[in-house]
């Protein structure tokens, strides 16, 4: 259940751009590729996510900010 809850958060992020199922049904193949594969124009995608925890640790020290870790089974930004 917890695993699915985390997945839901990711899914919720992705879905902001991709809610128009009916529109996609009318797309050309090229448009469908664009719709499903483009970098989403969604709030989560505007976050400057670091992918390396060691680099994040260094930035945290330099900028005196805490580290926020989004930790999932499957990468949060892909492979979900």
């Amino acid at each position: 259940m917890l695993r699915r809850s985390m997945t839901a958060i990711v899914t919720w992020c992705f879905v902001e751009l991709f809610s128009a199922t009916q529109v996609m049904a009318q797309d050309s193949d090229s448009q469908t590729c664009e719709t499903l594969c483009a970098t989403p124009d969604a709030p989560w995608a505007s976050i400057p996510w670091e992918l390396d925890l060691v680099k994040a640790q260094k930035q945290s020290l330099e900028q005196a900010k805490p580290i926020f870790i989004w930790s999932m089974d499957g990468h949060p930004l892909a492979c979900t």
């Binding site: 976050i47 900010k65 805490p66 930790s71 089974d73």
Partner: peptide, 26 residues
């Protein structure tokens, strides 16, 4: 999240297994 934190996204399947400084830190 942008302004007040250092946001990092990881697949913990890897990180919790890594025998290196990143894995140790996680």
């Amino acid at each position: 999240l942008k302004d007040k934190f250092i946001p990092v996204a990881i697949d913990q399947w890897y990180t919790r297994r890594q025998q290196d400084p990143e894995g140790d830190f996680y």
